[in-house]
Amino acid sequence: MTSTLVSISSKAIASAGDAAGKRSSLVPTVAGLGLLTALLLFPSIAAALDETFYVSFVTRILIFALAASSLNLILGFGGMVSFGHAAFFGGGAYIVGMLSIEVTRDIGLLPGTQSAWVAWPTTMLACALMAALIGAISLRTRGVSFIMITLAFAQMIYYLFVSLKTYGGDEGMNIGTRSTIGFGLSLSDDATFYYVVLALLVVSMMLFRRLVHSRFGNVIRGIRENETRMEAIGYDTYRYKLVCFVIAGSFAGLAGALLANQNTFVSPRMLDWHQSGLLIMMVILGGVGRLWGGVVGAVVILLLEEILSEYTLYWQFWLGSLLLFLIIVAPKGLIGLADRAFKGGLK
């Protein structure tokens, strides 16, 4: 019985993959270009309407979209349900913070730096190393054990930073200013920062798209469908999964670095298991294993949070109820739901 179920579900996934793989349709391209134009014009419109608050709000959404998309690489395409993505997201934030306040001089690791050109790649590299270590151990387990062992590592890092008094401990750490990028631009200006984040998100998504459709991406999806079979064909599945985990970790680190810049503040809350849970929620809600799943999920959840908290003190109650409703009516996420509605409309 189980095997029929598995074959049915893998067929479903394969057909969904085909739909995603078709690039002939013009509609998504046009819609994408339209959206990009709107995003490019957004700060000017917000400035004209005197609603500049929304520029940093949308920046926040873009940052979470990047973090959720990086999680989707391992969770959606690789089938690795990591419950510890906050380790890299929050870790990246801390690394930028640590680099900026020059406290690393105390332990002689690196001189402090404000430059984004140094700090952000360093953060990505450090998070990649961290992901390599955590992944190397965690990926020897599967299923529920993998969920729990990634959680365990994230909790270790959480408690590490809670007790590191040099970096603010429980209360978190203020970062004086945002990173500098030169060229006469200042990230302290919200609109400039917005464009930098938008550019990084677009570039990252293009990379993810290339990655998912590459041979590497096919192997990763093959492992999700049937790891034993991929092993039998001769792929070193462990190594493929580890590389995927490392890529996801480093991009989550980049997102964390951006969020630290956005808030000019880092606290252990960014490393909390709630943060991992939130990122998982975004991915599932948007669409597991759909390229834009993380982006859609981040947009919907953060928008809902913002709108609901305008109207009621108990916004978590309504957010939770809505999520519960959506998970019942849209088991394949919002993108899956849209697919179904779109196909139904054509017939």
Binding site: G277, I284, F317, G320, L323, L324, I327
Partner: peptide
């Protein structure tokens, strides 16, 4: 995970 996480919020 998603459903029970939502339940925690509720």
């Amino acid at each position: 995970v998603l459903a029970t996480f939502a339940l925690i919020l509720i």
